[in-house]
């Protein structure tokens, strides 16, 4: 009986003393944190992807609370809804950003770009890119080893084993930009998602002269400038032998798609055309379907 009392007393006293020490230590080393940081963090999607440019969602919340205005702060994953919530909590106004989505600017499937050699190193784009130009004749195109797939936190980009090209699942893509950074060939771009997800872009990054580009890949941009001439909105420019469609000027008229001789310009999610059905390449059908 005595033993139990002693044990209880000792443990009780140790507990009490520790509690007192802990209390004072907690007081002494208390760091004041704006309670709104927690609130903002709760409103964020908690993906911690770093797409906003800050280390994780808490870093972003911290920046939002400290900043005077919300200009330049945007959570690509949560989008406008989340930013409205954040703005509500902080009593600031959020900038509305146009939703964007990742597109892969390479159309060189196995059919279009014959393999000239066989890569036998680690299946890692960066390592292969540092070593040499790639398995095909095109030194600009996709290596197909899937660094983008590994970098994606949302399972939205996958390398298709048949075409050896990455495909973006636009419902899952949050346009956090991780794949853009991961691609050593700089093929991935964040573009405006567009009305009803309709977009047109040049699916090529080859800056070689036309005949060289054409030789290495059937669907390369040969900088013939037909698209530049036909575009009524001056949305297409050609620099370094490569056409580029500016998504802020493009009105999705689809004229450039028709004139492109190599089918390097891709249209997504449009209803099928009434005429010229037969001119569709297998790749476009696949992308549209």
């Amino acid at each position: 009986m005595n033993l139990i009392v002693i044990a209880l007393l000792t443990l009780g006293i140790i507990g009490a003393v520790s509690a007192i020490i802990l209390y004072f230590v907690a007081k002494k080393f208390h760091v004041y944190e704006d309670p709104r940081i927690d609130e903002v963090e709760a409103a964020l999607p908690a993906a911690n992807c770093g797409g906003c440019g800050f280390p994780g969602c808490r870093g972003f919340a911290n920046a939002c609370v400290k900043a005077d205005t919300l200009d330049g702060l945007f959570c690509p994953v949560g989008g406008n809804d989340t930013m409205q919530k954040v703005a509500g909590i902080l009593g600031k106004t959020a900038v509305t950003a146009v939703p964007t989505v990742a597109v892969v600017r390479c159309g060189g499937t196995c059919d279009h770009r014959p393999r000239m050699n066989e890569y036998d190193g680690v299946k890692h784009c960066f390592i292969a890119h540092n070593l040499y130009s790639g398995e095909t004749g095109c030194s600009w195109g996709c290596l197909g080893l899937g660094d983008c797939e590994v970098s994606c936190e949302f399972d939205a980009i996958k390398v298709n084993p048949v075409t050896k090209l990455p495909e973006v699942d636009e419902d899952k893509c949050t346009s956090c930009g991780a794949c853009v950074k991961a691609c050593p060939k700089l093929l991935i771009e964040l573009r405006k998602k567009g009305p009803k997800s309709r977009r047109i872009y040049v699916s090529c990054r080859n800056e070689d002269k036309g005949h060289i580009a054409k030789k290495s890949c059937d669907v390369s941009c040969i900088s013939c400038s037909k698209c530049e001439k036909v575009c009524p909105h001056e949305a297409i420019t050609i620099t370094n032998n490569l056409a580029f469609i500016h998504d802020d000027k493009c009105k999705l008229c689809r004229k450039c798609v028709e004139v492109c001789p190599t089918n390097a310009i891709v249209e997504l999610n449009f209803p099928p055309r009434k005429v010229k059905e037969e001119s569709m390449t297998p790749k476009e059908e696949q992308l549209v379907g």
Partner: peptide
């Protein structure tokens, strides 16, 4: 027909 490429 295809040469093998790998790092040293």
């Amino acid at each position: 027909d295809k040469l093998i490429i790998s790092p040293a």
